[in-house]
Simulated assay, not measured.
Amino acid sequence: MEKTIPTIPELCDHVKITENSKHNQLPDIVKKMLSGWSTKECFDHISPVCIPSQEKIIDIALQARRIIFPGYFTTTKLHASNIEYYIGKETMDLYELVCEQITMAIRHDCRRNRRLCTNCEQESAKLALQFMEKLPEITATLAQDIRATLAGDPATKSPDEVIFCYPGLLATLVYRLAHELFLLEVPFVPRIMTEYAHSQTGIDIHPGAQIAPGFFIDHGTGIVIGETTIIGENVRIYQGVTLGALSLPRDAGEKLRSTKRHPTIENDVIIYANTTILGGTTTIGEGSVIGGNSWIIESVEQGSKVFLKKPELIVHHANGQKTHL
């Protein structure tokens, strides 16, 4: 049988591609980037000072949740003989993690604002302890939030369902942790926490907001609660609610930073879906009910019920008739 002699292939495509490579043009791009970072037009963090870790700050929130709700979010089987050891270890680990991230946050803030030394490690240890001392109070407040959820939502049958499943409780838990750090004036960390909850739940609560116990978020997607919002006890809000600021000027970042820009919601108020309430002087009085899709920029007195006028709906039937509802 005659053997087939293999032919010599043409020049390899890899060689052709390599000859056409544009790698040699990349150094010019790098130089332009470096030039941009040397101006005020761009932002960078080029420093030997480590920036806070988003991943570890999220770990702080999740580890605190394991402590606040023992047995719910761990594979460890907890019982009377090991609960103190488990909580003790988790608490020690959390304290060290909080110390570490607060230290990094303070160092970065000092570097960014060219401040004198603030003894960051000593200050971080103090602030971390103050945060840890708030955990029992946060736990008790979240218990009230859960009871409010059970009282207000017929769709849930147990606290376990609320703790495991409800995005509103996750967002509220992370907010309550972040709020304590905000009050301690810890840079960066509180906002990273609440933006994590925002990304997970669609609920955007600024850590500076003041929210009393018994807070119930139903469904939750699209809720926005601004920095200077004040919410009283036993308030219930539904998806799509915005508690925001009125239209702000372009230089509001400096001029209005310390100004109350967001509304006050008094005790026992219910705000239904897709309602927008704006303005720092706007107050929703105690016991009021705000119907869905409302737009409110003025205060509402106690015990009010606010609803939109019923819209006219037009139904075109298959037989050509038209009905107004």
Rank of each mutant, 00 (worst) to 15 (best):
T281W: 04
I237L: 15
L313Y: 11
L170D: 04
I17G: 01
I284C: 10
I225P: 08
I5C: 00
G287W: 12
Q25H: 03
S21L: 04
L150Y: 06
Q130Y: 10
V15R: 11
I58R: 07
L170I: 08
E133M: 08
V162W: 02
Y196F: 15
V289I: 15
E96I: 11
A212I: 00
E55V: 13
G88F: 11
K305A: 01
T139Q: 14
L34H: 15
I205K: 00
Q144D: 01
C12E: 09
C99Y: 10
A155V: 03
I87F: 03
I192M: 15
S21F: 01
M132V: 02
S288H: 04
T276V: 14
R261Q: 10
P167D: 09
L97D: 03
L313I: 05
I284T: 08
K260Q: 14
D93V: 07
R112F: 09
C120K: 02
Q122V: 02
F164I: 15
E55F: 13
A125I: 02
G291H: 05
L135V: 13
H198K: 05
L135K: 01
D160K: 09
R147V: 09
N293I: 00
E55K: 14
H317I: 05
S47Y: 04
T229F: 03
I102D: 10
Q54C: 11
I296W: 04
I296F: 06
D109F: 15
R147Y: 09
H14Q: 05
L248P: 04
V269G: 03
N20R: 11
L325S: 05
G320Q: 04
N113I: 00
L129D: 10
R261E: 07
G244E: 01
D160S: 12
V189S: 09
E298Y: 06
V300L: 13
K40G: 10
T275Y: 04
T4N: 12
I17Y: 11
E84S: 12
S294M: 08
A148D: 08
Y272Q: 11
P70C: 06
K310F: 05
N24G: 02
F215D: 04
I106R: 05
I231K: 08
E298T: 13
C117E: 10
W295N: 01
A125C: 04
G292K: 02
L325R: 11
H45Q: 14
P136G: 06
L170G: 07
Q200M: 15
T39A: 01
R65P: 03
G279H: 07
G71D: 10
I217F: 01
F216S: 12
K40T: 12
N319R: 04
I163C: 07
P154Q: 11
I277F: 09
A140Q: 13
I290C: 06
E133S: 08
I217K: 02
L78K: 13
T4G: 04
I211A: 00
T172K: 06
G222Q: 13
G232C: 09
